[in-house]
Nucleic acid binder design. Structure first.
Lengths: 140, 140
DNA sequence: CTCACTTTGAGACTGAGTCTCACTTTCATA
DNA sequence: TATGAAAGTGAGACTCAGTCTCAAAGTGAG
């Protein structure tokens, strides 16, 4: 059994050929990807996975914290592998779409203060900064 | 000319009956509302505004900073009047849907530091904390 | 191996939001 | 206050990400 199988097994997720093949592609991805993109990639590789299964499996993997889902107001979700990665937030360029990741412990701890104040139990958060990236500002 | 007309005029937005009527309802709203909700309200009041115009006008008002748009991952947007209000962010309860507002200057300034570091010009941001609100935690 | 239970695929369906285009309204200027 | 270019509107068709259905196939505990 491969390493990827272990990832699913550990989560108590039933192993199927489709899930294995999808997971393999999804974890190899070096950037954010959409369900449609992944479906198209798999279709071209003749992986034999239907659109419905792609959507279902991505949702499943996100629910099991294998993937992160992001909504950058594009009308569809972007996914990102979570394996071996730290939590991070994003700077989103409104002009070129470039997404830059950032980590800031001070924001995280302030956030916890806020939650404590409202007796709120944090499950997750999403912090996005929209604007112009360096390149787009200087006119590239 | 009413106060609301002035709001639109100031932004250089052409005044139409539909916009006036929509703006009036939108600014009276005390909580977040969706385009469909507003359309339904207006329809029941026989305001004579089409669905297309509701969507178009909300977008326009948001572009002119009269309204804020929020995406709480519900599959549609929620709007909120911006007039006379401070910027704020949100705690979103995953169980009951309750939305609580918060303001935290420290987060805002840390955010500016982050942007500066990446030579990024902030236009807007969205910071949402998902989890369980006080009531849902204690089992109400 | 068996079988209860789960997953899959094809394609119909949903629902928020956009587009089209003929018709109407607005408002700067005369 | 009349005029007309430019902008806005409505009905309903359309888009498109995502979900649902249900018969058939696959999975894995015992």
């Amino acid at each position: 059994m491969g390493e990827l199988d272990a990832v699913l097994k550990e989560k108590g997720v039933k192993l199927t050929e489709q899930r294995r093949r999808l997971l393999e592609k999804a974890l190899l991805q070096h950037k954010h990807f959409s369900a449609e993109e992944l479906y198209e990639t798999l279709r071209q590789k003749r992986a034999g996975i239907s659109r419905a299964t792609v959507y279902r499996t991505l949702k499943l993997l996100a629910a099991h914290d294998v993937l992160d889902v992001h909504d950058f107001d594009r009308g569809y979700h972007l996914y990102e592998s979570r394996l071996g990665r730290h939590h991070h937030d994003h700077l989103v360029c409104l002009k070129c779409g470039r997404i830059t990741e950032f980590e800031n412990p001070d924001i995280e701890s302030e956030q916890e203060k806020v939650a404590r104040h409202y007796h709120f139990k944090i499950v997750s958060h999403s912090h996005k900064i929209y604007g112009l990236c360096h390149r787009c500002r200087v006119g590239n």
